[in-house]
Nucleic acid binder design. Structure first.
Lengths: 234, 234
DNA sequence: CGAACATTTGATACTATTCAAGAAAGGTGG
DNA sequence: CCACCTTTCTTGAATAGTATCAAATGTTCG
């Protein structure tokens, strides 16, 4: 499934990403040498929870879900990554085993980057280092907020918030349909519940005219109210 | 409540900390110039959720709890920090508002470090930068694991795991008594439930001869079993 | 078409929270 | 040092929210 891509096309792509935009020519060149381009289809696994990572994955395009497997086999989706984001950096850096499995949700274009190369760049370019640091800090912040949600909100609140958050991450089309079609199971795994409960909530929201459901297409009709429900301002 | 401490005492303390051990003499000197020593008693707030932080707090000694306030006023303790750890770094770096309140649990000796000073050190010393990065990554890792716990485990499981985790963080004395005495409310806020539920679980564990309870002193009598309950290997 | 999988609905069981009320502990001021 | 007040802890009973289970219906795809 590997695809040939001209090196200057890759260079252009790198230059467009916030993370790598500020690298010098020689640094970009170094990156390009240590980079392995690939295209993968839905369902493929980029890496598995428990694996050792010596590469970091740069996502040019597509969507990846990072899921963690709970003790009873129930999975929890801890993050969706889309174009421009990086995967596996934390595991690589701390040299811990990957704490999540990364699975392709929408066909992706990725680059596997040699971890040592990133380390080198961070050591030599303190600005780049800072950018990466901020990245990780941002993720930490999001994760800590996420905890409060799962810990204290009801399923109703979490589903409402989940929908709004999906809108933030993946945007909606002109009709306010979520651009990413998720199975009920995935949606359940995002908000930490079971598919049945998600279905009931969606049915409720439909009755309340907050959403319209058409299979996996969900149209957000009253984002404000959904947000309110999700933030428990009710 | 500020206390005078000789500068070479401070220098020695810094040198003992993993984070700052590898700084050069001049870097340590810079740090000492930008550092403000303080001792604070239990109950004091180091900083509040929602505040802007331009300083980072270095904890020499004592215990601090970081709590987040949930939407219904219920708080959740997301981390205990003890000697050698740093607080507020993430908020400072991303220039976001503090996402948690830091409250003293056991009298602390801290140093407020000018954030700009840390930034400077990170820019000039890539090793230091890496150490800080790993620190943040480690926190991220812990937080992501924590999510699974609150999201999928029962109260029984979470309390069991909470006890074991407290042992890891704060250790136990010769009799396996947890060295940190927590109120039922705090314990509840750690595992994401209400005090009543914690009490019932502690009572259960007592019946099962897993723990001994004496007010706020909790003695872990069967750590293995508690661990098993907490990890749901049952 | 049939098999596998996803969605939906209803009935049921269970866990955990809430509420209320009393007991114990800790702190304060006379 | 004791009486009083406040807070924390504990227990029981009622309730609400979710998960689980089972079964029916839809959907997808080889």
């Amino acid at each position: 499934m590997e695809t040939r891509v001209a090196i200057n096309v890759l260079r252009d792509r790198l230059k467009k990403l916030e993370i790598f935009r500020h690298l010098s020519e020689s640094e970009t060149a170094l990156l390009l040498e240590n980079l392995h381009y690939k295209e993968l289809r839905k369902g493929n696994i980029l890496y598995r929870e428990g694996c050792y990572l010596n590469k970091v994955i740069l996502l040019f395009d597509g969507v990846v879900k990072q899921k963690k497997c709970g003790s009873k086999g129930k999975e929890l989706i801890i993050r969706f990554a889309k174009g421009g984001e990086i995967l596996g950096f934390r595991s690589f850096l701390t040299e811990e085993l990957a704490c999540a499995t990364a699975e392709v949700m929408e066909d992706v274009k990725v680059a596997y980057i040699e971890g040592s190369c990133l380390t080198q760049l961070m050591k030599s370019n303190s600005n780049f280092s800072m950018i990466m640091m901020k990245h990780v800090c941002g993720e930490l912040s999001a994760t800590q907020t996420f905890i409060l949600n799962v810990a204290q909100k009801t399923v109703r609140e979490r589903v409402a918030e989940g929908l709004v958050q999906l809108k933030e991450v993946f945007d909606v089309d002109d009709d306010c349909n979520l651009k990413i079609p998720l199975s009920r199971r995935d949606l359940a795994n995002v908000v930490g519940t079971v598919p049945e409960s998600v279905i009931r909530m969606l049915a409720d929201f439909k009755k309340e005219n907050l959403i319209e459901v058409n299979g996996r297409r969900i149209r957000l009709m009253n984002i404000q109210k959904l947000t309110r429900i999700g933030s428990v301002a009710m």
